[in-house]
Design a binder for these strands. Sequence first.
DNA 1: ATTAGGG
DNA 2: CCCTAAT
Length: 692
Amino acid sequence: MVFQKRSSLEMESGGGSHVAEMPRVPKSARGKRSIRKKESQGQVMCAFDLLATVAGKLLDEGEGSLGNASSGTPAVEASPKDVRVKQEQCDEEAKHFKNEVMDQDSCNESALVSHIAFQRPVNHHGRKGEDPEGSHAVIEDPKAKSEALDKESSMISCTKAELGCNFAAIADRWSPESVESGAFTGDAAAIAMPATTSGFHKNAPDMYNLLDPMDVDVKPPPLVSSDSTGEMPLYGNKIRRSTSFPRVPKGGAGFTVDRDEDDDDKSSGCTHPSTATNRGFRPNCTAGHSRVKKLLACKHRKVAPARMHKGDLSYSDVDRKPSFRNKKMYYTRQRTQRSTFKRRKMFDRHSAQVSEEYAKANTKFAARDSHAVSLEANKGTNSTAFQKSQESSDCHVKLRIKSFKVPELLIEIPETATVGSLKKTVLEAVNAILGGGLRVGVLHHGKKVRDDNKTLMQAGISHDEVLDNLGFSLEPNCAPHPSQLSPPEDNEFMETVDTTEPLARIAPADSSSKHGEVDASQELALAPLSANYQGSDHDFVHSPGGMSSPDKASTNSRAIVPVTPADSNAGAIVPANKAKRSPEQGQRRIRRPFSVAEVEALVLAVEKLGTGRWRDVKLRAFDNAKHRTYVDLKDKWKTLVHTASISPQQRRGEPVPQELLDRVLAAQAYWSQQQAKLQPKTPPLAEALLLT
DNA sequence: ATTAGGG
DNA sequence: CCCTAAT
């Protein structure tokens, strides 16, 4: 709706004469920003909503046969039609330009490109009027059903588990940083964790760049028009919008192109449940898998031979989870790294902070619904949601446990079994997967069931009871007190890896080092998931060269094993943590030379917005490129200006088309002048007088 | 959080 | 790219 209004406005203004954009409109601009943020929030909610809905459906269907769950896609498709449509548009556009710009493969990128093309039809190879049609208004439907969330909190949690949407959450939990960055996403968000929200927004910047009021009102400055004859005032805007569409429905089907990354990351994970699930489903960690299987198989035989089918399913889950995790982790890391960094500066103890957040999250969780997830503050980490499948007649309690860090497990155990045996069973399975060192805690109705000798029945855990009330937590064996908590980060790592010695071994340094290393890959891995669309920005660290690769998808196949890297350092690092961290933190970001396409986008944006509004430039042209900050853009512009002023022979790196450089100079000159005009508050006359 | 500049 | 100061 808003959108429509704007467009009309735009059109009108376009036709008429326009006032050049003001170089800056600080106040107004900022105010708008806040608005955007709000909107994004709404969207987020929406996404959750959707998720909840889908989950619900899946659950319903799933009960009968889990098999369906994986193919539950239909449900997803059904609801978010709008989203779909948008997505398609995006894709379309992308197709058009892909050929031209191989560089970037993200949807965003393509969008960007297309946008460019539109704006400057005359210049380039005939990609001119591709389609103004994408401009129809986007239908936003940010219905935030917070209440729904509340009511269905239980459902949601279940859902997450069922869908495997957790994967997002899963990975996130591993590193505190992720939490901070808002990676928390899935569950946290779903669960309604205000604390994390802020992070969330951050990552999910607004997809409104296009909608930005500024853009609308602002007409193409003279420069632009002069630059290319047939400018696109009206057109360009429209186009832009259309391009942006995809993002608007961010929450939606998850195809949130732009954001995905990162950012986004966050919502994306949950967003594509079906996809994720399916993809994730790969025989990755065979070793662990078989091992677990064996373990469980034994039990099954003894206990409930008949139910194996379910077990199989869950196993499959196991397989897929790891992969998720890996992907996620990578992704998360990357995303997070930076923020973490900053944080560190601010608080030595960033870890502490994280833990706090964690705690909050946990608390809320618990409060909200007794069932399912419980996080261990000290460990920070493992939360498990479990679901009991309704098996009626026999006295076996079937538990389906989903842990953030641990692959999903399906466990069957007689009601007469003791809590202790239940714990043991779960522990065995978990250990098999993780490689050990974990202790399992059982929570019933939010309370810890400490008496290992009680039977499940005695504890109130019976087959006919709703599973919601049962939860498992993973705890390190040795960790005696949660209170001591080592830095949350570490803990998390630990958990991931081996939980054996939680506190001691984890050193902040470790985690950091890991982060740095893994970083890039994470993103890659993740990308495939969300993938279907993607944004452009995946940064592939490993291939700094710049190209994005289509193969990202293929990438995900990689590792699966839950294993985790972490422990490697852990041992070494035990007590001392201060020294280590600092150095690692200092890591410089990897160098990612701007591609010509990026330069073009930058130039285009600057031509429109001017040189003093990097933040807007970022939003407009690089919203999806998480690795390009406004500072980066500003710096790049600086170098571009410099490059343009030196001889071609002196230039290095990927050659930038002279045409672009010329535009850079033109824009630079134009905006400098503009600035000069506005700046001098002191009228020339006055100046003159003073000088005299 | 952004912007502007120096390094 | 990083780092900082000033907003």
